[in-house]
Design a protein around this nucleic acid. Sequence first.
DNA 1: CGGCTGTTTATAAACAACCAA
DNA 2: ACTTGGTTGTTTATAAACAGC
Lengths: 331, 331
Amino acid sequence: MTSCALDNSLTNIQWLGRMSSDGLSPSTVKQEMEKENQTPVQVEGIKIEEDSSAVASTSTSSWQDSISERPPYSYMAMIQFAINSTEKKRMTLKDIYTWIEDHFPYFKHVAKPGWKNSIRHNLSLHDMFVRETSANGKISFWTIHPDANRYLTLDQVFKPLDAGSPTSPEHSESQQKRHISELQKNLGGSSCSKTETQNARRKMKPLLPRVNSYLVPIQFPVSQPLVLQSSVKVPLSVAQGASLNSSETGRSSKRVRIAPKILSSEEPSPFLPMLPVKEESQCLGRKEKETKGQADHITGATAGDLILNPKEGRFWDPFRDEHLGRERVSV
Amino acid sequence: MTSCALDNSLTNIQWLGRMSSDGLSPSTVKQEMEKENQTPVQVEGIKIEEDSSAVASTSTSSWQDSISERPPYSYMAMIQFAINSTEKKRMTLKDIYTWIEDHFPYFKHVAKPGWKNSIRHNLSLHDMFVRETSANGKISFWTIHPDANRYLTLDQVFKPLDAGSPTSPEHSESQQKRHISELQKNLGGSSCSKTETQNARRKMKPLLPRVNSYLVPIQFPVSQPLVLQSSVKVPLSVAQGASLNSSETGRSSKRVRIAPKILSSEEPSPFLPMLPVKEESQCLGRKEKETKGQADHITGATAGDLILNPKEGRFWDPFRDEHLGRERVSV
DNA sequence: CGGCTGTTTATAAACAACCAA
DNA sequence: ACTTGGTTGTTTATAAACAGC
Ligand SMILES: [Mg+2]
Ligand SMILES: [Mg+2]
């Protein structure tokens, strides 16, 4: 009822103490940073060298990893983590920024200021995020459309300290069997997929850790709109394990690894709280197989995916299409 | 019935004859162009200098204009022009590419190869574009969702040779009154808004010509799903008038002027074929005024806007939200 | 294996509407 | 009131990572 206020506030910065040095001084950090579109890149003290070794270590999660490593989550996922961490399941833009910075130091110290632009972009673009106004109409809160909320929280993506996870032990591999089969080919060997868990005290479990330039789907039973303890504000100093595998271990600078959503095909996403799928399937995809491509969005339901995604039939979404760009016709 | 085959084919290239020189040779053009993401920029013969004069000419539509000038339409608009130019209101990706290149030389000779990526991106992103498969399931056609199709065609955006337009004479100004009022301020004077029409023989009428860094809404009566004569494959040599006004006359290279969609506020877009608006308005915008922002999408219906856009209430679109990015939860 | 088609994420940017100094 | 600059939102443009064929 009232704990959300605590969770949202910008408290808990103890773990930030292990930063390079300052990092808290009002405006001394990032000298040259116009406003939100430049490239600070070099966070003063923190130097982020690329390439070099990078020999399929996957266990060299040193100090840097927890701060320079970009989290394996998409903006959409992080925004959900943030919002779902509150009791009322709503958060202001500023608090979303703060929550993300507090839980993923990468955005506080390494990312270019443009990451906030991306956050706003995601909030607007995805209809899943709905803006609501406080009773007095003074404050704007971002919420997650109830039909779309899977109540994902950061807690859920942390690997247990040992092995057997709360609900499902080690699914991290059971999913991609189907389609990945030979996809592994064009990737430089090293099939790693659950290789991380070693030195991690409570590593972040990538919802879809990458296998080289790929993502390894990980199971995730969300049986009920389970409202886990609003994310314990992870002592980030340990989080951030992420998924660095073999070749071209995605450091953080160039090559902003985009994480495609891998869908499990068949079975309408087990574990996930089945939502009232409107179903309609008017098939119009090329194969209907498991192409995921628009026609069978239902099957391919990623974590953030709304199950109700018949598309076509009806219920598609007309909206957001429109805008011909620069117009307002006439003649 | 059978004329579409003609319209879609890559015929009609006579007008292309006035190009720099070649432009038809299979692969001699653009020497260094990996595949679809490099920057040819300099189309061999055509040199595109920027800045220089640019003194509120708006009438210097010389030869270059028709080829180097980027059309004032968004990809979404052009795709609609292309698809609606066919009789069956459907077109293959390749034909969309061709149609656009044939009608907007900019994309054939100046644009970087990445423009095709953008076309595909738009087709996938906007639910307005629906992919359908031919009976035999061999060919994929892109169509426009019936509830979203305003049947916009390129013909409709061409200014008449003189003044009084077919249906509505000169609305080009009646719309933006409401909100633009003092918006003109932060823009370098020159209130131009209908200054173009002079030397244009049949200039392209920007659906939303820019007023400086602004767009001037233009009326557009689409009373019925009027299926105009499938775009006459304009002799582009004259088209491309576009909207260059005063300061920083958008040449074409840097500063890819993005054309925001200006909504007329009140009146649910006059002229436009009113669609079955589901209406629901649960207001959640900051002011409900005419902020257009999400809450009142209905009022702000641009040319391409689907009127049915209650948002919130129901009918929003769940879809396309989902995808947490890189995941497939578990735990 | 390579190109084409599709889907989705990341970024940058143009603007609009607010808002606080 | 008015201006100025930052914040919040919306939308378009591009590039790119991948998946499937
Ligand atoms: Mg939204
Ligand atoms: Mg689409």
